Every structure is written in structure tokens, then in C-alpha cells.
Simulated scan of single mutants.
Amino acid sequence: MKKLLLGLSLSLLASSAFAADAIVGEAAPIFIWTGGYVGVQAGYAWSDGNIHQNNGPGFIESDPDGFLGGVFAGYNYQMSNDVVIGAELDFVSANVDGSGQIFAAPGLPFPGGVGTEELNWSGAARLRLGYAADRFLPYIAGGVAFGDIGISSNTGVSSFGDTFTGWTIGAGLDYAMTANLLLRAEYRYTDFGKEALPAGVVDLTTSEVRLGFAYKF
């Protein structure tokens, strides 16, 4: 009986070890982030926008907000220590605008005067740095930003616009749903800088939240 029990015990141990080996052998491989990708994105922006009169005291606080959407593409390289570096380009069409009271000077509103500032599109060229945790990739990113900004008013002054150049920085999380399909959530801050247009000195900074979906090659 003892020999029978010993034999059964050894058999169960061997079966358990074989089952464990089979489970390990069937485990999903660690996801590798190296490769190119293209995707679509959409989001919402809120801004701090100002227009100041050229060489004068007049000003407008417009603070545009609104929605945006577009495309992005990039390439990741995963190093042996799971650090991921990459580069990315993106472009969005924007419906981000805001209006404010025109002040001829602090405390002196221009009667009935309203000025509008709007972001029509923006794009960026960014470098990314992240850390791969299997299918999760938290990252930070920053680089050069471009945006088409226009201003107008109801006072009969002509509308003006130009392409501004500034900088952007942000953080996000990519998640690999499958070997090829990626999801993204991101926050970014962008300063488009200041530029003197005929109607005044214009500046705009934006905060944005974006959601994206991409295909990895």
C-alpha cells in the first residue's frame, strides 16, 4: 500500500509539473513596442488667449475653447531595459475659438466692441520617452508646435491671421489591445508664442486632452 501511495504521489507531482510547463509555454509573449504606427485622434482644448493693441493700452481676453481632430504617425524603439524612445508627427483641424470685450484701456470698455481669437489648425513634431510595462506604455513627449491663429472683431477692422510657431509638452498612456491595435489617452500643453499682427499683438496657450486609436506595423 505504501508503495502504491508513493507511486500515485510521484505521478501527481509529475502531472502537476507537466501542466505548469504547459501553462508557461502557452503564456502570451511580452509585447514589443518597436515599430511604426499611424492613427487618428480627437479631443478638446481650452486656452488662455489675449490680444493687445500695438503700442497702446487696449486689450481683449478671448480664452478660446472647442474641439479638434486629426491624424498622427510615428516610430518607437524599445531598448533592452524597456525604455522606449520615439518620434512623432501630428496634425489636427480645430474649431477652437473665443470672444471677449474690447477694452480701450484697463477699466474702459469699448462700447459694444467684441474681439474674437480662433485656432483653425495645429500640428507638432515631438520626441517621446516612455517605459514599457508589457502592453502599457506611459510616456512624456515634447517638441515644436505650429498653429494657424486668426483674430477678428465687430468694429469694422479687417480680420488677420498667421501661422504661429511655439513649443509643446505633454504626457500620455498607450495601450496595446492586440499586436497591431493601440489605444491612447494624452494631455498636452502648448504655447504658440506671440506675434504682432496689424490689429494687435496676439498670443495663445492651450491645454488639450486627446484620445487616439492607431495601427502598429
Rank of each mutant, 00 (worst) to 15 (best):
H52Y: 12
H52I: 03
H52N: 15
Q53P: 02
N54K: 11
N54D: 10
G58T: 07
G58N: 06
G58L: 05
G58P: 06
F59L: 08
I60Q: 00
I60V: 15
S62D: 12
S62P: 10
D63P: 05
P64Y: 07
D65K: 14
L68Y: 11
G69R: 02
G70H: 06
G70K: 05
V71Y: 10
V71K: 02
F72I: 01
A73Q: 10
A73Y: 10
G74P: 06
Y75V: 14
Y75P: 03
N76L: 10
N76W: 12
Q78W: 06
S80K: 14
D82H: 14
V83P: 00
V83Q: 03
G86Q: 06
A87V: 15
A87I: 14
A87T: 13
E88P: 04
D90V: 05
F91S: 01
V92S: 13
V92F: 01
V96I: 14
D97W: 08
G100N: 10
G100T: 07
Q101R: 12
I102V: 13
I102W: 00
I102P: 00
A105C: 09
P106V: 11
L108M: 13
F110S: 09
F110E: 05
P111S: 06
P111M: 03
G112E: 05
G113L: 01
G113Y: 01
T116L: 05
E118R: 14
L119M: 12
N120G: 13
N120E: 13
N120L: 07
W121G: 03
W121A: 06
L127N: 06
R128P: 05
R128Y: 08
L129W: 08
Y131R: 07
A132P: 04
D134H: 10
R135K: 14
F136R: 13
F136G: 13
P138D: 10
P138H: 08
Y139V: 06
A141D: 08
A141I: 04
A141V: 04
G142A: 10
G142S: 10
G143Y: 03
G143R: 03
F146W: 12
F146P: 00
D148G: 02
D148M: 04
G150E: 15
I151F: 01
S152D: 11
S153R: 00
S153I: 00
N154T: 05
T155S: 07
V157K: 01
V157L: 11
S158C: 01
S158R: 08
S159F: 03
G161H: 07
G161K: 04
T163S: 09
F164T: 00
F164A: 02
F164L: 07
T168D: 06
T168R: 07
I169D: 02
G170K: 00
G170Q: 02
G170H: 02
G170C: 11
A171L: 12
G172Y: 00
Y175W: 14
Y175N: 10
A176R: 10
A179E: 15
